[in-house]
Amino acid sequence: MACSLLPCAVVAVLLLVLPSPSAGDPDLLQDICVADLTSAVKVNGFACKAAATEEDFYFKGLGAAGNTSSNTYGAVVTAANVEKVPGLNTLGVSMSRIDYAPGGLNPPHTHPRATEMVFVLQGALDVGFITTGNKLLAKTISAGDVFVFPRGLVHFQKNNGDSPAAVISAFNSHLPGTQSLATALFAASPEVPDGVLTKAFQVGTKEVEKIKSRLAPKKS
């Protein structure tokens, strides 16, 4: 049914002035805002430094494979975010390279501020994400394939092959953030109380303490 002129005009105005939900970082308000990573000023993003150079927009760290033996998971992430490329500040994009040894796992985690798209450089991976309705959407992807992990949803990648694998990840945030479920729950500081974890996972205190000991940060 057609609406009358006044109600339609009110709706049109509301649609124009009300803020719309954003799936990524907010729009920038200037050409560039190179992050001053030394500044003590804390804002929703990084403070802008006074002078910018071309080096603020340059990074060559994604060209070489990462050291997959550096952790027990057999997978390593090399990030090209605002902390590595200060010129990305406020631009709403970043990238990473992830390398996987045979059997390597990028364990279940979330990116609270970004959707992720991976492009497979080499090898094959079993990937998937879990919806808030606890439905797993999973697929095996190989070189040249793309897969998307929606913002904030738990996801993973696993190399079940006999050879190394690698992907390039793209994010719609200059600093997407990563929260590993296992580390967040079992290696938090201060610790999550054992009583919370034993009840949540329906296991005993010994099992919880065993997991905590394995995930505890290594002392230098």
Rank of each mutant, 00 (worst) to 15 (best):
D36C: 05
S94W: 00
V146Y: 14
V127N: 01
G92C: 10
P102Y: 03
P108D: 09
G128H: 07
C48R: 01
L16C: 13
T53P: 08
Q179Y: 15
I211N: 08
K218Q: 12
S173L: 03
G92S: 12
A114D: 04
G144S: 06
K60W: 13
G144P: 08
H109L: 06
N159H: 05
N160R: 08
L91D: 11
T78E: 02
N89I: 03
T72V: 15
A79W: 01
V82N: 03
F119H: 11
D31W: 04
G61D: 07
P19N: 06
S96L: 04
T115V: 10
N81V: 14
A165S: 11
V120R: 02
G177M: 09
G66E: 04
P150E: 09
F149G: 00
T115E: 12
L125D: 02
G66V: 08
D145G: 07
V120P: 02
L62V: 11
T68S: 01
V154R: 05
L16I: 12
P108W: 05
K139P: 10
L136P: 07
F59M: 06
S169A: 15
I130A: 10
S70N: 09
G123D: 03
C8R: 12
V208D: 01
T205Q: 15
F186L: 03
E83W: 06
P193W: 11
C48H: 01
K158N: 12
G92E: 09
F171W: 00
A23T: 11
D162N: 14
S220L: 14
P107I: 07
N67C: 09
V167F: 04
A47N: 03
H174T: 13
C8Y: 13
D162H: 04
H174L: 05
A75Q: 03
A143Q: 14
A51F: 15
D99M: 09
N71L: 05
V148K: 14
T178K: 10
A114V: 03
A188E: 09
F201Q: 12
K158C: 10
C3H: 15
T53D: 13
N71K: 08
S173G: 09
P193C: 11
T140C: 08
